[in-house]
Design a protein around this nucleic acid. Structure first.
Lengths: 146, 146
DNA sequence: ATCCAGCTGAGAATGATACTCATTCAATTC
DNA sequence: GAATTGAATGAGTATCATTCTCAGCTGGAT
């Protein structure tokens, strides 16, 4: 029997201390509207032709702040590029270490996972990234018959 | 009852088709001996003064190959730096989105997690990365009393 | 001895992200 | 309304890990 309640990895509520500023809201809107992950460069390009246009440095600045509030998560592709998505979209991926193809997983296998408070050492959980790596079917074939 | 056996995320056996070459063995040895993650630069520096010295490009080349065999996993820090560890060491982390401090988790919460084969779409699983992000105790304090 | 294929590494190229700092903006006070 | 002030902005630059290039090397096969 656990001495303390375990902490679901899913109940990481965003920090709502202060409201988002307009710039941050627009970035979050874009990420939500896109339906898939975007890089900092993508976001900058998408906003370029809108009234919410902002410099690249500002895009990165606000993405970092959104991340620190737990509203946005980012993952790195093997290429080094960072992709951002709203944390409310709990999507994770399977990536081929050979060709780099990436496949979204339909369900987050972490939904039922809990962490013990003593593992957290006072951390306030905001979000997690879970990525699987392997070799996709076509790269397996290519390797078998070179 | 599941129609097909679910696949444990832990049974990703390395690809042992061909033996490792000497360079790859030395890199793996270094990673195992270190007891903690190392960057490509770290590995290069550590080998510099040994008879197994090799160029930076070669370090990265072989790290990629070790990754493609499922022997090494890598995770990216928010700073963009990539850290490598042997996959046999099933260690994951809790990282502060504010100060960047990173804390190893004692146990992998994924040990009992399984994926359905239809989620894998033919992928051969090699390893996973699971990282938690949050705000560490001292950064929470600093935010509360600014 | 010669050939060849793959491996190597020094240096340059790349590219994403972070930094700098002069300018702009907004809110507040005279 | 004018002045003040601190924060936010962005164009350009710097940084730095990683990747690429390509000429030279190595070691096995002929």
């Amino acid at each position: 029997m656990a001495s303390e309640a375990a902490v679901s990895v899913m109940n990481a509520s965003p920090l709502n201390a202060s409201p988002l500023n307009a710039r941050q809201s627009h970035l979050l809107d874009q990420l939500q509207a896109a339906g898939h992950e975007l890089s900092g460069q993508d976001l900058h390009a998408r906003l370029r032709s809108t009234p919410h246009c902002m410099g690249l440095a500002t895009v990165y600045r606000h993405l970092r702040q959104l991340q620190q509030r737990g509203l946005v998560r980012c993952r790195h592709l093997p290429s080094g590029e960072a992709l951002y998505a709203p944390t409310e979209r709990d999507e994770h991926h399977l990536t081929c270490v050979d060709c780099g193809r990436t496949l979204p997983l339909r369900a987050c296998p972490m939904h039922d996972v809990h962490l013990q408070p003593q593992q957290l050492d006072g951390f306030r959980l905001l979000f997690h990234t879970l990525e699987f790596f392997g070799i996709c079917a076509s790269c397996q074939e290519r390797q078998d018959v070179p």
